[in-house]
Design a protein around this nucleic acid. Structure first.
Lengths: 331, 331
DNA sequence: TGGCTTTGCGCAAAGCCTTGCGCAAAGCGA
DNA sequence: TCGCTTTGCGCAAGGCTTTGCGCAAAGCCA
């Protein structure tokens, strides 16, 4: 940098300002500096800049690395928006476990990240949240919104979307609709359940609690829960699965049981699959705008980084219902 | 740090050495320093360390962020191993496009990463590779191995694994085996094709070139290629798809055509699916050790970072064949 | 006890950039 | 032409560690 300054006949501070555009530099001078940089092959040193400026232009993302397409798209959305904003992104794996999550976040904090996007694990309120309170670092929560928390959050309209799909099933004449519930302690799980209830209430339909079975948000749990439903005295005529993993398990169970979809049983599910129309029949799903959620999260984070005192904002993005054949509406 | 030094009655250099264990410090002194650190709540500043040490303990990963489970597992493997080695990982999305890839890699280089793991895009040799030659940064290639290149590489035994599966189909009596080829220009594509040929040669079976159709490595390409096969005068009795996306497309095509698997057509595919046994019937696949490939890549990278002159090494990890029902061997 | 090897630690330079402060020159209106 | 506002840029402090060099104290052997 000193060399460039000398070559251009200016001071290093001017070179710095040319590089960063941080203050007015006469066009002629700027030209000279840029030329000198080119000739000398000057390479900016980001580390030194970070040290000097006390900021490293890096944000962290704490998320489970589970091989779930939903997460991948979310990450893409976050990465894309961060790149656009000129921010680096460091991703750490929480393994969807609060303790790992806390360790990972502590690590990020030690690296002096300037902001954090977190898709919290179950139980994070007792472990990771206190950490975040101690270190006043801007952060935004994605996917799992906690209405009690006064923090920036971005998620999908779980309740409304679920209600809409269940409405649809009810309108097709189903009165006994089973639901595979997501793991307890996740706001997404409870919100989707609320949507189920809301649709029933609107239709004046009673809810048989036997039709609500816990699928633990996993493929295996979904499989087991589906079996439970099938073995009821009065099994459901339709099933709503609250996430993609459970859907996979449930489909396997139905296939094994020889249940034909949608002839014997109508199915709808939360989370869209790239391969949703691969199944026979195509799956009716609720598609989340994953990438948009990620992008929005970064925008909220930027806002908070610039204005730490801003009032917390909880954003809900609408979901899209993908009508395919499994719900039985288009035979 | 200065404060800690003062509080412990030592110099900052001693504090530094205590923190890093870089030279002998008398136990008593170390104790004092550590105590002072605790009392003062000393926080290490990684940025400053990077600047001073001229190294930032960060490696880059250039990979497509496509929502393909294979990549996710690969990333997990890389991330896990990097974390274990105390390295930070910055991931950039190549969009599987050589130009984007080059830009992304340039960006990483500008950030002074100390090593790079790259899953190259088609055409990278003309765009990204020269970049890597200009900046002598240690790197290792994953997934797409180029035998002509004298660089560190990690991949799977594409040829042997493919040959084994095709052997299996042949042993079941199939003599007309279709293949959905991956996009041209990818070593994985050509190696898998070689495996197909090798199996035929071993069995003394001629190869009908009409049975080799281009699936472009995409789901849509796979669908189209599958249709092509079905419309042949003498369609195949078995099909091998060279990656997971094409498999998805092909299955959709077969379903639409009313082809029953494996009764009418046997199927086997490269790349395992978490949901492979969800399909009716379960898919016989070649499972790559994705996480292991990623971990191994980081190990190779560490080796090269420590010993830049070491001879380049190309590692092939064995794949595992997952026998399910689609190949028709267990009716 | 004297000379030599360890052991332990301080000194200070180096690493590269950012930025508040302030000065000088240029521009402008009267 | 004078005084005042802009415009443009230099000075130098600062940010936090690492690390080569070298000195002093301690330990060891004869």
């Amino acid at each position: 940098m000193t060399e460039v300054a000398r070559a251009a006949g200016v001071s290093v501070s001017t070179v710095s300002h040319v590089v960063n555009g941080t203050r007015l530099v006469a066009p002629k001078t700027r030209e000279r500096v840029q030329h000198a940089m080119r000739v000398l092959g000057y390479q900016h040193h980001p580390t030194a800049r970070s040290l000097a400026a006390g900021s490293n232009q890096t944000i962290g993302l704490a998320i489970t690395a589970a091989s779930n397409p939903y997460w991948v798209e979310l990450i893409q959305g976050i990465d894309g928006e961060a790149t656009r904003a000129g921010l680096n992104l460091i991703i750490v794996d929480t393994r969807d476990d609060a303790r790992h999550e806390a360790a990972a976040v502590a690590n990020l904090i030690a690296h002096h990240i300037e902001g954090l996007v977190i898709a919290p694990a179950v139980g994070w309120r007792d472990v990771t949240l206190p950490l975040l309170r101690d270190h006043p670092i801007p952060y935004v929560v994605v996917d799992r919104i906690d209405p009690d928390l006064r923090v920036d959050q971005v998620g999908v309209e779980n309740e409304a979307a679920t209600a809409a799909v269940v409405d649809h099933l009810i309108s097709l004449g189903h009165t006994r609709i089973g639901m595979l519930l997501g793991i307890e302690g996740l706001s997404t799980s409870s919100e989707r359940l609320r949507g189920y209830h809301a649709a029933h209430q609107r239709a004046g339909l009673p809810v048989d609690r036997a039709l609500l079975v816990d699928g633990l948000s996993t493929s295996d749990g979904g499989r087991r829960a589906a079996w439970e439903l099938l073995e009821l005295d009065r099994p459901p005529t339709a099933v709503f699965a609250a996430n993609n993993n459970m859907t996979i398990g449930a489909l396997a169970a139905f296939r094994a049981a020889g249940v034909k979809v949608p002839r014997d049983l109508a199915i709808a599910a939360f989370d869209d699959f790239a391969w949703a129309d691969l199944f026979s029949p195509g799956l009716t799903t609720v598609a989340q705008p994953s990438a948009a959620i990620g992008a929005r999260a970064v925008q909220l984070l930027l806002r908070r980084m610039n204005d730490p005192g801003a009032p917390p904002q909880a954003v809900r993005l609408p979901a899209e219902i993908m009508h395919r054949e499994s719900c039985g509406c288009t035979p």
